[in-house]
Amino acid sequence: MRKQSFKWNIPILGGIEFFSFFGITSFWLLFLSQQGMTLWEIGILESIFHLTSLLSEVPSGILADRFTYKNNLLLGRIASIISAGLMIVSQGNFWLYALGMIFSAWGYNFDSGTSQALLFETAKEIGLENRYLKLTSLLNGILEATRTLGMVVAGFFVHGGLIYTYYIQLVLSLLSIVGIACLKEPTIKMANDNKQSSWQILQMVYRLFRQQTKLFRQMLVIQLLLTIISMYYFYYQNQLPNLKSWQISGIMLFSSIVNLLSITLSNLIGKRYQSSLILWVMLFLSGGLFLMTALQQDWLYALIFLITDGLVVLFYPIYETELQNQFVSEVRATMLSVYTMLGSLAMIFLFPLMGWLIDYFGFNQSFVGLGSLLLAMAIWMRCSKNKRNGANPKIVK
């Protein structure tokens, strides 16, 4: 009976993620551009988001490990509501947008790592810990489906109505709060005698990094590479006004299909291939695709968007599962927050830099240059592996 009650956490968590991350505001870059922000200013706003995330990720993870997962998720949705409200009332004011980005980051921080930790601990409660990759692939499938479904809907607001997407986000955040109230907290979170202080949690994280000396560096490299590939996903938005609303929604719908296929394949591929090989393929394919932006074809831009986004979606649950198996329950949310924090660190520098490059050199030239960089990285990875006489990189299983 106890296991049965915890099983409900999985579908409830799926529902919470559906409403929390419905991609209705995915075209925020285009929205800010329509409100008079330059790409350089948008890059600064995105850096504010990621600087906030960088500073808040670990504290939010500590709160999740120190207290309850449900409280963290609730704080995240409250922050999301405040952020949406600020975006609605800003009306071209840079500083109000900046404040909205800060609350948006907090909305992300309090969920980041917490939902994955809750899912892993729930799997342990019901004896499905060895099936976590399948469960997290399922959750990521829901996330990708809801993100892209939201983008499909948002596509109809692209030509002048994107502000209404933030009203929709307000309603969806309230629905998420209802779901959070229905979650059952894992046993380890309810045992008061086992709770660690914030200082003890930080000490445990430090000891884990000392014991696995290359772990931090590996996590940073992975996040840096994923961020570089993801640049296209963000800045492709500025090309969307060249298309009709139904074409935009069609691309986003097809993106949902591609991402769901990627999630399905991640569960199969992750059991058969090492993550280093998958990462190398990602770099090689993404680099080649970015070079093709030189052809300046709208249909090709869309194809590059679909494939590169699908590759990131494919890789993420595979590597995240590897990380989960290296963490202990007492610091699980904190360690996942450290991993996410490293992604924010990469975005702080790369996002405004890419915005400046596009403003100065143009969309096509900038991504041709980025494609050349990715191909060089792929070649370097292959040469480094050959020099190690075929030894497997430490970032793999």
Score class of each variant (00 low, 15 high):
Gln247Leu: 05
Gln247Phe: 05
Ile248Tyr: 06
Ser249Arg: 06
Ser249Tyr: 07
Gly250Thr: 03
Gly250Pro: 06
Met252Lys: 08
Met252Trp: 11
Leu253Asn: 01
Leu253Glu: 01
Leu253Cys: 05
Ser256Asn: 13
Leu260Lys: 00
Ile263Tyr: 12
Thr264Gly: 14
Ser266Ile: 10
Ser266Ala: 15
Asn267Met: 11
Asn267Arg: 14
Asn267His: 15
Leu268Gln: 12
Ile269Val: 15
Gly270Cys: 04
Lys271Ala: 13
Lys271Ile: 03
Arg272Ala: 14
Tyr273Met: 15
Gln274Pro: 00
Gln274Ile: 00
Gln274Ser: 09
Leu277Met: 01
Leu277Glu: 07
Ile278His: 06
Ile278Trp: 03
Ile278Phe: 02
Ile278Val: 14
Ile278Asp: 06
Leu279Lys: 04
Leu279His: 01
Leu279Arg: 01
Trp280Lys: 09
Val281Gln: 02
Val281Ala: 09
Val281Ile: 13
Val281His: 00
Phe284Asn: 00
Phe284Gly: 06
Leu285Asn: 01
Gly287Cys: 11
Gly288Leu: 06
Gly288Tyr: 02
Gly288Asp: 08
Gly288Thr: 12
Phe290Cys: 11
Phe290Met: 11
Leu291Met: 10
Ala294Val: 08
Leu295Asp: 04
Gln296Asn: 13
Gln296Ile: 11
Asp298Lys: 14
Asp298Ile: 13
Trp299His: 10
Leu300Ser: 01
Leu300Thr: 11
Leu300Asp: 05
Tyr301Pro: 09
Tyr301Asn: 13
Ala302Gln: 13
Leu303Asn: 03
Phe305Tyr: 15
Leu306Ala: 07
Leu306Ile: 06
Leu306Met: 13
Leu306Gln: 12
Ile307Leu: 06
Thr308Phe: 05
Asp309Ser: 15
Gly310Leu: 01
Gly310Met: 04
Val312Thr: 10
Val312Arg: 10
Val313Trp: 03
Leu314Glu: 12
Leu314His: 08
Leu314Gln: 11
Pro317Trp: 07
Ile318Gln: 01
Ile318Phe: 06
Glu320Ser: 02
Glu320Lys: 06
Glu320Met: 06
Glu322Gly: 08
Leu323Pro: 03
Gln324Ser: 09
Asn325Ile: 00
Gln326Leu: 15
Val328Ala: 14
Val328Phe: 09
Ser329Pro: 05
Val331Phe: 00
Val331Arg: 01
Arg332Met: 12
Arg332Gly: 08
Arg332Ile: 08
Arg332Ala: 10
Ala333His: 10
Thr334Tyr: 00
Thr334Trp: 00
Met335Asp: 02
Met335Arg: 01
Leu336His: 05
Leu336Gln: 10
Leu336Tyr: 08
Leu336Ala: 08
Ser337Tyr: 03
Val338Gly: 05
Thr340Asp: 09
Met341Ser: 11
Met341Trp: 02
Met341Asn: 10
Leu342His: 03
